[in-house]
Design a protein around this nucleic acid. Structure first.
Lengths: 359, 359
DNA sequence: CGACTATTGGAACACGCTTTCCGCCCATTA
DNA sequence: TAATGGGCGGAAAGCGTGTTCCAATAGTCG
């Protein structure tokens, strides 16, 4: 090991940079390691201002930063929180992440962000890795999965994490006994349905998301039930499964049009899907929105304002949800676990209108 | 300290979860810590299959995951890379981040993602924190700043990081001697100018980004020079500073219209700005794109396809840039530092057209 | 002026893991 | 059969920091 460094035969002042240890700082300031430690991390013990000053100066000169792994080991606690999302480049998640990361930064915590690329296996794996890192907490963003085998293993991993003293919070339905920020998916979808009904639509289709997501199930249920209550059927063939992406929405709309040419309104289960739906209607199907067909999305991502026509959607305060979830994570644990319900409300914009009168 | 745990008076098998140590696994498998360690992290030394099996099984039963900080300390290397972006919720950065994080995940590394919210001080701070964490490398995404005082301190911090054995790479101009993925900002802006000139535009305005970013300077220079070479002036008042956000573009366009009512084409220095520009033209100024005024953006974010008309822009392969930068970071260091130039090419879409004929 | 207290510096151990260095045992060969 | 070498398990010494406990010093009061 040629790179081994012996501490004694080195000059007291290493060139700035390098791997400076607390011992180096102590040596350079002519004090013991204990004293240097006390000065540099505000322990309860007070150090004489004279010495404290010398230590501070030495640390600055040497560009000392404490070795976080060593610190974590000694203190048995870290300054890291985990943030697990399904896809960084989905505006839904990045808006939430922005809120969450801001709060984490306020608390002087570093965020380990993991993107599962919508693969539940990776989600489990990440929780485990964050457990290994002794993360102070982990925030699970995004819908849970309905598949019980997956869910069970995720829960076990989460339980192990919590058993080790880590805090857990989630955004969205995870049926886990931890603090949760819960958007009113069902209620929001109901409102979307009511809006379309009020406008006079009766032949309504849905471009959905991955059926294995609980969010999808809830939104779909709320929508369908409200329609049924009004005597409007939502047959199976009127529901096309997408994948919650723009391209999925595009393809889904084409399929829906094939199955159900008479459709006058489409409910897309999230905004990227809605955007794709509108693109397909414009570029592929040549049907005008909202004159010939209405489109409603869900989430209200920023882009909803920039498509033409502007997108009618169900608004969720994404960034705020991220903030609040991170606050739950970092506050004192509330036992029993708290659930923050977040209101979802329809924002009526340009993509909806009454259906064309029958010829 | 009521939570202190004495190892000896505890049963060998802790309930799953808890803070299980390697020693616990070793005890439970009836081997030494050394052996357990060798089994669980594929060291060079081989362990007899009988014992190895026992260890594996014990680890699984106890849900053991190694203590990453302790491992980092002992190995003097971590499994973490840092990723510093200006804003998570900007599609430019989140696309790059997606690429970078995918590659990091392929290498079994966890990503510590930090969002500076466009504050250079935070950027410096984050590099320092990542140095503390002994991150294996740090990827600086996004333009550097022209302010020399900031830049200098950032460079010092980066140098300290590198001196400690950390790898560094950046996306965008940082004038740092490290591996760099460099989008051809100047060239791209030149092409944008040529396109507008070829269409016949002569009264051209710019909605810019924060002037302190090098990216802004380069794009602006390329654009202006090309115009000048064709004998078209770009006076100061034709350049409005935005902030690289959609809202900045919106406000910028209004200001530009005030200063220069006769403008027939606008170059927005990034896509969110361009989207804002189009929104202002539609909602506030009532000028039709591209019939009355043309708009060109830069970056080609996904939303460029979903605005109406679709946005003519200068395409950068964002996700690929993130991937390649992360590869540079993780590959063997090339000395001298490598620079990967990334071509920027104009994609002509719906937001550009020849200017209206003079009345 | 001496003793006692309040205060602060320093030695040493603990945190959980890696890794070197020993030593043991078994198999192979003369 | 005995010597030798290879393979493999275990003891122990760190890695850099936090923290407890003890000693030493200064300050105060009787």
């Amino acid at each position: 090991m040629p790179a081994s460094r012996s501490r004694v035969d080195r000059p007291v002042v290493t060139g700035p940079g390098g791997l400076v240890t607390l011992q180096d700082v102590a040596d350079s300031a002519g004090v013991s390691r204990a004293t240097a430690s006390r000065v540099l991390n505000g322990s309860s013990r007070v150090v004489g201002s004279e010495l404290a000053d010398r230590v501070q100066r030495a640390a600055k000169v040497l560009r000392y930063v404490s070795n976080a792994p060593a610190q974590a080991l000694a203190r048995a606690t870290s300054t890291v929180v985990g943030l697990i999302v399904h896809a960084v480049d989905d505006p839904y998640f990045s808006a939430i992440a922005a809120g969450a990361m801001r709060v984490a930064a306020e608390h002087d915590l570093l965020t380990m962000m993991a993107s599962t690329f919508r693969d539940p296996e990776r989600e489990i794996d990440y929780v485990s890795r964050l457990r290994a890192h002794r993360a102070r907490g982990v925030l699970l963003v995004g819908s849970g999965f309905t598949a019980t085998s997956i869910t069970e293993r995720l829960h076990e991993e989460i339980a192990a994490f919590a058993a080790g003293g880590g805090r857990v919070a989630c955004i969205g339905e995870h049926s886990i006994p931890f603090d949760t920020v819960l958007p009113e998916n069902r209620r929001g979808a109901e409102q979307a349905a009511k809006l379309l009904l009020a406008l006079g639509h009766r032949r309504i289709g849905v471009v959905s998301g991955p059926p294995e997501l609980t969010t999808v199930a809830h939104r779909l249920d709320g929508f369908r039930d409200t329609l049924l209550a009004a005597g409007v059927a939502l047959p199976e063939h009127a529901i096309v499964a997408g994948d919650f992406t723009r391209d999925g929405g595009y393809a889904g709309m084409i399929e829906l049009a094939r199955r159900m040419p008479e459709v006058t309104a489409v409910f897309a289960l999230n905004d990227p899907t809605a955007v794709g739906v509108m693109a397909a209607l414009r570029d592929e199907l040549g049907r005008r929105v909202p004159e010939e067909i209405s489109v409603v999305g869900f989430d209200d991502i920023p882009a909803a304002l920039d498509v033409s026509p502007t997108l009618t959607t169900v608004r969720l305060p994404l960034e705020e949800m991220g903030e609040r979830a991170m606050r739950l994570l970092l506050d004192d644990p509330g036992r029993p676990p708290r659930t923050l319900r977040v209101k979802a409300e329809v924002v009526s914009r340009g993509s909806t209108a009454p259906p064309r009168r029958e010829p």
